[in-house]
Amino acid sequence: MSDPSLHLTDLSYFPGCSLESSARESNISLMEAAGILGLNLIELEDWNCCGSSSANILDKEIAFSLAVRNLSLAPAHRPLMAMCPRCLYHLREAHQRLAREPETLRAQERRWGRPISLDLKIIHFLEVLVRLGPARLHQGLVRNLNGLKFVPYYGCTLFRPPSLRQGTYYQGELGNVLTMLGGEPLTRALTHRCCGSFLSAARADVVTPLVNEILASAVAVGAECLVTSCAMCQLNLEIRCTWDPRLPVFHFSEILALALGAEDYEGWFTRHLVDPRPLLAARKLIA
């Protein structure tokens, strides 16, 4: 399975608007975890929004060009890694279109005045972890998760849209990785149900029952928390839940970094709207 052309030491990193602002704790903990695992994440110089759902709805061409500008900034010799599933989706979709339409590729190269490589690998952080292999994770394990019962919540985008379903399938790996670190995944909840995405802003009345449903399913299987791969899901699950008591919702990178022994977790967890510290303290994962 290992692709010899893919060197996993230096990676271009595309944070995206959410990880840059509202989900900064995910960004920081990701950097931390990557450092412990020996990955060198080099933030894409002067990146811009990936195109987002909104731009794609209003003007597909502008959205496409936005995604392509990022591709034109990425050096071809190292893979481009994204953390946000939606960013991954838009970047990959644009890349696939460039491969299909050589005239569009040339026009975009002229527009940005930079070459765009069709060989550029665009991957998700989860894929990087799986390719690194279990040995490296075991090596870094400092805090065993002590059977922390979590629901691996993937949301709707990671690996689901048709353009992301080409190539190797990494479904289920979020649970596998955390199992290796001592967690206990509960997969019989609504792990792939959409969180409501941008409707959370304009139609909260539609999103609230949906989020409650997802959290209720997690409670029903006996979960103590949810771990999500998407920053927007994390936010929606926290702000739109009207249930009590609320389950903490973690970014995947936070739990990973915690297990790998990161120490500055205080700064991440204070940014949560549902305080996860009592749970972690009860599990003796933090002081």
Partner: peptide, 24 residues
């Protein structure tokens, strides 16, 4: 039919035009 949703999308695009990124 859903003018609020459309308005939200417009504001996201406006932010991208202004900053290159979405400013929540």
């Amino acid at each position: 039919a859903e003018t609020n949703i459309l308005d939200f999308h417009r504001e996201v695009l406006h932010s991208i035009k202004q900053y290159g990124r979405a400013h929540k």
